[in-house]
Design a protein around this nucleic acid. Sequence first.
DNA 1: TCCCTGCGGGAAAGGGCTTTCTCTGCGGTA
DNA 2: TACCGCAGAGAAAGCCCTTTCCCGCAGGGA
Lengths: 357, 357
Amino acid sequence: MATLSDVARRAGVSPATASRVINGSSKPVTDELRERVLAAVAELQYVPNAHAQLLARSHRSAVGVIVHDVSDPYFAEITRGLQRVATDQGRLLMICNSYRDPDRELEYVELLRGHQVAALILAGSGYHDEAFTRQLNEKLAAYEATGGRVAVIGRHEHSGDAVMPDNRTGGYLAGRELCGLGHRAIGVVAGPRILTTTTDRLAGLRQALTEQDRKLPERRIRYAEFDRDGGAEATARLLDADPELTAIVALNDSMAIGALATLRARGMAVPQQISVLGFDDMPIARDVTPALTTVRLPLVDMGVRAMSLVLGVEAPTPRVEVLPAELVRRDTAGPVPRSTRATAGSAPRARRGDSRS
Amino acid sequence: MATLSDVARRAGVSPATASRVINGSSKPVTDELRERVLAAVAELQYVPNAHAQLLARSHRSAVGVIVHDVSDPYFAEITRGLQRVATDQGRLLMICNSYRDPDRELEYVELLRGHQVAALILAGSGYHDEAFTRQLNEKLAAYEATGGRVAVIGRHEHSGDAVMPDNRTGGYLAGRELCGLGHRAIGVVAGPRILTTTTDRLAGLRQALTEQDRKLPERRIRYAEFDRDGGAEATARLLDADPELTAIVALNDSMAIGALATLRARGMAVPQQISVLGFDDMPIARDVTPALTTVRLPLVDMGVRAMSLVLGVEAPTPRVEVLPAELVRRDTAGPVPRSTRATAGSAPRARRGDSRS
DNA sequence: TCCCTGCGGGAAAGGGCTTTCTCTGCGGTA
DNA sequence: TACCGCAGAGAAAGCCCTTTCCCGCAGGGA
């Protein structure tokens, strides 16, 4: 690889001058030398060594992002928001997938610190795990102590800036909707119970049911991986245990799609025989058939906010931005079937297209 | 940030010794000193500066990857394959999204070169663009001249190692399937015509039709963005121009999903009134309703192969691995409707579940 | 004529780490 | 006792840039 001195030598100037030309330094350089340097750069196909640059310049500009999995639409949307702001400010993003492995998450914090990122954003659910939370907080604190900025998205563990989707209210909206439609036998297809996202959403759901004097017994909840296959499998287990179910709440859209697959395989009509509710409103939700009724989270916006927090002025006290959840009515949730209906359900409503509450 | 000298000072040793302990060097260090260093590291929360390390070590280990968009399932799957091999070999991946912008692609080649990556993988379609191709090849050649390894996935422009999905045969299989089902009025929802992927798939399709004495006139092709919305919009245009169509081939699954959305909105039954074929077989294809008949590409495997090529031994002559496409029959393609059938279609076949040709 | 100023350029000091080279002190052999 | 060899530690030379500091020179004002 050609180095800066190679360029300088070839152009017959000092490395200092070459550097100034290449970086468009404010220090003036005569046109003649400038030409010579530029020519040498082109001839040698010179590309500056990024590591040497980052070492020499003291100011750090890249931003580190840790998500569970970028290819999961939930994180893809958030990342889109992060990226948008970062690009606007000319920041490079380093994105790491933890694949929901807490240890890997800790490793990535170190890795990104080592790469001298100016800020760190952790997106995704937190864990109910004291030891892990403490460890993570220690690492984040150490990073912040050296001037690093940190923001979390959708997790409780960090005491600093945070962007929180209102998971609890989202769960509540889902529960209220199903109650309104007359459902009593409601099953839940949940993500891993160690995730705070799971428990937050469940808590809201439970609250809605309680307000209507209904219960959400533990036997009507199945925990599985937060993805399509987890949803399919949990739905099967749920149905086997309790064939009377008239509604299923999936705690994210991927699981809901898995649930729909299982129901289709078993020949159960949605929403005539059984209703399904998702969570997140990822893009594909409107394209499955029937289109998925779900709780929308402003994913892109969550990314935008988090990046803005972290690149903006530092606040004396931690800021927590709670972003609202919103019910999107599509075609998978309908009134409880007549045969099992206990009380009169609500009037059937028009389908097709989205309507939000 | 604590530095190595801070650690050394605190432990009362030289930086050299501290470095040896931290990196597990082969040079022996007494246990006592080792302990002291480790203690200092823990107390100071020391993390080595990655840039300084990479500068000091001459050997490069990271691998650069340029894709159109990781959050697109096509690339997400390929990336999964890349990642798998890279992780096995303890390599860090730097993933960059070009968002199908050739200029950004060129910039990323430089960026990654600057970051001293050991190898470079370009995935995604190539462009019908002489000037761009030449520029890219120059940059890649310059990189290879300094010992960098390069592999491309699904693109023709590079003369070195390549992994190629058999797009042409895939197109051919799609065409043959539809001909076999009796279709004559076939429309195509295509990606941008500047992409070689588009033209390769079209070429195979055209060949299949020609063999059956059928034509694929340009007026039955609509070019649009290679995504869901592009597919929806192109389908609408296609239908407006030619309401007699009995089948639509979408040149990737995202577009096919858009096509299904448009057809649903217009109340056209799939596959009774009109058949739809996709391409790629991304994971969601089996979960839409009706489940998508499509041409499968071994996406994960493509990633695995490419990474293996680039991390394995260098070959004297360029290797090109062509990976086969395969038709996956699901529920969106059926016999041509009776009313428009010219000749007897094939017998209806069982649906549900996948069957491959 | 002398001094000051300002411009254009180079020398050199880092930036934080790895690694080779060198040095010291010890045990073992002749 | 003298010498050799080696283990273990430190000194120092890079790795490739950026940036400060300094220097020489030309022009302008006193």
